[in-house]
Structure formats: C-alpha cells, structure tokens
Amino acid sequence: MQDVVEQLQRLGMSGYEAKAYVTLVGAGKPLNGYEVAKRSGVPRSMVYATLGKLVAKSAAYELRGADDTVDYLPLPPRSLLERMRREFDDSIESLEVSLPVIVASPRAHLIHSLKGSEALLARAEDVVAEARTDLFLSIWPEEMERLSPLVGRAVERGVETAVVHFGSARKPVGGFYEHRFPSPCATAEEQEGQAGQAGQDHRLLVVTGDRRETLVGGFSGGTVWGVYTEDPAVVAMAVQYVRQDIALQIIADRIGHENMRELCAGDPELRRFLTGHGCATALLHAAGMPGAPDSTPDGRLL
C-alpha cells in the first residue's frame, strides 16, 4: 500500500489524497468520511476536505443517501491511470512547444557536480534517454546493469550506439566492444597495495549523447563523484576518448593480444600511457577526492 501511495504522489496527488483513494479502492464498497479516516490514517479534521479534492478531480464520487448521508466511491484504477496518462501526455506536448520559447541562451557552458551514486546514474539515464542520433559510453558492468534497458531502447529508436564495456556482459546492446586490452585497471592492485586500499573498486563512467552533452563520473571504494556539461570542448574530448579506446580494442583484436602485450612490455612510454586506462584513480586524485592513490609504481600520476 505504501508503494502505491508514493507512486500516486509522484503523479500529483497529495499524501492524504493518495491514502484516501487507496483506502476507497481497497474497501470494495462505498465508505463515509469517518470510515475513510479510520482506515487510511488521514486525520478526521482533514478527511472531508481531502475527499472533496478527490471528487473535484473526478478521482472519487459522492453517493448521497435518502437521509442526506454521503458515501464515497473511487474512480476505478484503470480509468484513473488512463486519465493520468492522457493528462501527462498533454502536458508534455504543450511544454515541448512553450518551454523552449522562454529558455534564455546560456552565457557560458557550465559544468556542474553530481554527488552520490543515485544522482550520477539518474543523470546518466537522462543523457541516454534523450539521445536521438548517437551515444558513446565507456562503462563497467555495475553501471551497465542499470543503464542497459535505456541503451536498448535507444538502439530500437535508431540511435547509433558505441559502448566500450570493461568486461563481458550478459546481454550486449548497441555497438558493443569489450575492453580487453590493456587488462582493465592493470595496475590497480599494485596501486591499492601501496596505498593500503586493497579491495576497493576504481571505475570511470563516461556517457555522451548526440555529441551535445556528456557526463563523467568516478567510483572509488565508497567515494562517488561526477560532472555534467554541454561544453563543446569537453563533449568532443569525451567522444574522442571513447572512440580511441574502441579503436585500441579493434587493433588488439586484429594483431593479437599477445603481440600487443609484447609491444607494450618493450616500450615504456606505451606502458605508461596504457596502464590503468578506464580507472577513476587519477581523476579522483586530480579532483582532490579521498581514496585515490598518489601515484603509479614508477612515481607518475596516471
């Protein structure tokens, strides 16, 4: 019942209205105000005003008896949900026309921070859901599990999607490339051992939609950070980051991973720039966030 009440609140009912409506639906018979208050927890001083609002919204109806008593009957849930759907769609269609008219042109492309995993992933969902031409993602299984349904819908509506995924996926979607070279976070264990942080995850998330907006986030143990921007330069760099990573995976597949490992092992510069790719440790360190190792084993910040 509490979940239904919360969902109705999200669709515009007050808490009292939602509780009263759910009580009427669950009763299976008309109820008077006293009975609604007793069963729903709505205060008796508020129950008649609450029922009056439901009647005004046509979410409930009054049944007047011969002795002028009043009982209340709910609008059937199927009818209520269909009405809400129509009203929601009408509002969206209206806002699609009117809202852009009042939007002022930004004086600058700002970058704003996102705090916590929920805020970060919710904003990532927005970027994926709003994409209409292309999507670029650099992502780990933990985050892909949540974003995968929306990425699948983007593919269905014709969005060109490129996903570099750190590890295998149960159900790959879009233009999927498994990141296998170099081994994801190849030096993470060494870094964690030096910093006394063994067992912590270090992951980087990049989501770019329509080459117009981008989100970059990092996960390091219990630390989560993220930024979102429509700055064209940052968006272009994020797209290029994903494109070049995909190109590296294709090259490694073409010439063989063992050959690539031998090449990198014999070239210190290649090894320096490829180890730890996709990890959030360097960006965490640069942002001054806790939980990031100070350096790589050779003393350089990745």
Results as ranks from 00 to 15, higher is better:
H112E: 15
Y16K: 07
A119S: 11
R243F: 01
D90A: 04
V36A: 10
V164C: 05
R64T: 13
L283F: 04
A122Q: 11
P100V: 15
S295K: 05
S183D: 12
C185N: 11
A162N: 09
D298E: 15
R243V: 13
G65H: 00
A37C: 09
G226R: 05
G12Q: 02
S14V: 00
P76K: 04
V36Y: 14
A122C: 02
V42K: 13
T187S: 12
D3T: 10
L121M: 10
K57P: 05
L215I: 05
E130R: 09
L274I: 06
L120G: 14
M237R: 11
M1N: 04
D267T: 09
V224L: 08
A195F: 01
D89G: 00
V216P: 00
T223V: 15
G41W: 04
A282S: 06
Y72C: 05
S148K: 08
P141E: 05
E142H: 04
A119C: 03
L137F: 00
G65E: 07
S220K: 03
D231N: 12
K115T: 14
D68W: 01
D134E: 15
A238P: 03
P232W: 02
L204T: 04
L81H: 06
K171T: 13
G209S: 02
W140I: 03
A162P: 01
H165M: 01
A169D: 13
F181K: 02
A233M: 07
G26D: 14
E143V: 15
S40C: 13
G158L: 14
L99A: 14
S79A: 15
G15W: 08
Q197M: 13
A282W: 03
T23P: 02
S98H: 14
H179I: 04
R157T: 09
T214F: 10
E118R: 08
S105L: 14
G221I: 01
P184E: 12
Q197R: 10
E62D: 07
L135C: 09
P141G: 03
D71T: 06
E96H: 08
A286N: 02
A37E: 13
R180A: 08
K29G: 03
E118H: 08
H179D: 01
L121A: 00
R157F: 06
I255A: 07
R153L: 06
L51T: 10
Q9H: 04
R180M: 13
G174Y: 02
G196Q: 08
A66W: 01
Q240E: 13
G199C: 12
Q197I: 07
E35D: 10
L204Y: 00
V103R: 14
G222R: 06
E62Y: 08
A292E: 12
C279S: 15
L63F: 07
L114M: 07
E230V: 07
D267Y: 04
H202A: 15
P76I: 07
S117H: 00
L205F: 07
G226W: 09
Q191S: 02
